[in-house]
Design a protein around this nucleic acid. Sequence first.
RNA 1: GCUGCUGUAGCUCAGUGGUAGAGCACUUCCUUGGUAAGGAAGAGGUCAUGGGUUCAAGCCCCAUCAGCAGCUCCA
Length: 587
Amino acid sequence: MSELEQAPQVVEPYPLSTLRHSVAHLMASAVAKLFPGVKFGFGPSIEHGFYYDFDLAEPLSDKDLKRIEKEMRRIAKQSPELVCHEVSRDEARQRLVGQDYKLEALDLIPADEKITFFQHGDWQDLCEGPHIDRLDREFYFKLQHTAGAYWRGDEHNPMLQRIYGTAFWSEAELERHLAWLEEVRLRDHRKVGVDMDLFSSHAEAGSGFVFWHPDLGVVRRELEEFWWELHTKDGYKPVYTPHVARESLFAVSGHLENYADMMYAPMAIDEMPYRVKPMNCPGHILIYKNRGRSYRELPIRWAELGSVYRYERSGTVHGMLRVRGFTQDDAHIFCTPEQLPKEIAGVCALVDKILTTFGFEYTAYLATRPADKTIGDVEVWDRATQALRDAAAIQGLPLVLDEGGGAFYGPKIDYKIKDALGREWQNSTIQCDFNLPERFDLTYVDSDGAKKRPIMVHRAILGSMERFVGVLIEHFGGKFPFWCAPTQVAVIPIREEHADYCATLADRLTREPFRCDFMAEPVHMNKKIKEAQHRQVPFMLIAGEREQEDGTVAVRRRGTREQVVMPFEDFLELARRLKQTRALGLD
RNA sequence: GCUGCUGUAGCUCAGUGGUAGAGCACUUCCUUGGUAAGGAAGAGGUCAUGGGUUCAAGCCCCAUCAGCAGCUCCA
């Protein structure tokens, strides 16, 4: 949790989740009052507040939210006591006449569990509680927005109207939460992307396709360089594979059978069906299969920044975070069963190195065999899952279980990273695969001369360039670390007669090379400072008479107003160190 | 895909049936300024696209495209 989002310091008589659940009830009672005939769905507390689902004839508007809030305050004053009644199943049924969803919820309660209602005033709700005792206690709430939500989260069910809200014990905490939401809004990569001219998408090109502008291209190139540097050290070699392949390849891989929903329709080339690739693995497999392989070659580690295209439903595309064409930082490791734990452990170490460079904390999840649409025997899955467990143990990496969350060809370790605002994102994944080697009949010749089956590890660390960079924009709020900032240094002369001195500074910086913007235009210095600030340039070097005489620069760090005058050579040393160490800060 | 909402200048937005607007950004001229907006003038719009209603549509209706808040699903 970030500073803005800390848990309450004072000990309250009830947990926050209990308060929020009760406020959800309060909201539902207000809706009942204002919209006779409403049917109620579920209304739980959630991470940052609560919601309640309603089946209403008319769509709700923001105006309605204000009315509902007002009614809530009235009801809280008028009927503050929240009481619990335990009733028989028959009585419950009578109390819920006409409430179709609640009756369905009642049927979900096991026979041996008690059935309780919570009531304030003349409104009651089937609910196991717990709740706060009185609605006239001191607390602060706000209704936030409405949205559609399927009954019980199933898209085959009717859609209900959901109202989201939040509640806190103190006004200060509510204010802090609202400030946090404002910060989230300000850092939104779509907003920052426009402000800083980083990327765009176009109706002309279709939904879900990202165009990287030059400044974000710089960021991406820096990440790629960093990525290749570490991968080369870890023995990965680059491969490149085409974006399109004959459909039959994806029949062999099992994609047509299990992944067709995500794939684009075939295109005919020489009257033969071809597909745009949704994954890179079949391509790497073809390279492996191109000739016989010896155990002496293993493990083989092949990496590719491979672009893939997947159909995402229209309502799900979101900026750079959820798109239809993206580049995975993909790699496949082909190894023997004996090598597997060490290989996976090596990937875990690489993940740690990369994620911590950006200042991310992370949690690792073990995603096991899905209930349907899988290939391979259960024993094979068990072996693969155990190998992931063993590798994590080697690394001392704790795993949280994600039952049924695996890919169709194997179990995986998924990483969730936590950004500067305390939000979680899923990027890195390590997948253990015994099945594709089987389907493609991959072999190597072992020391005893026998042909044996290798194991494949699929892994992506950034996940996709698009999603990772989108998260980075929000994580840093556009303030990229020095090493990958689009412009690293802005050089600003105080008056035009200092331009020559500044030009020599800019020239030195550019030849280093640093990405340097010599702001030579004959406009007011203040305007340039404002512009550089707006573009989140890490350093401004400002020079006038004093600096020119002393061979110094006035260094202004991003986010501060102070200037530190230092010899230019000292600044060069600082910049070199920040670049070389890929430091997060500017000191 | 589904529910609701939105689409007017590069950006943020005003404009509820009768001559397309503001601030910022941009261009030009003036200003020579020591750390976040000096002054003046100018340019910029097929009001998302297509159809319909109307004497008249940015505004009302329909469709399409794109976006937003969610649901579902995911790197």
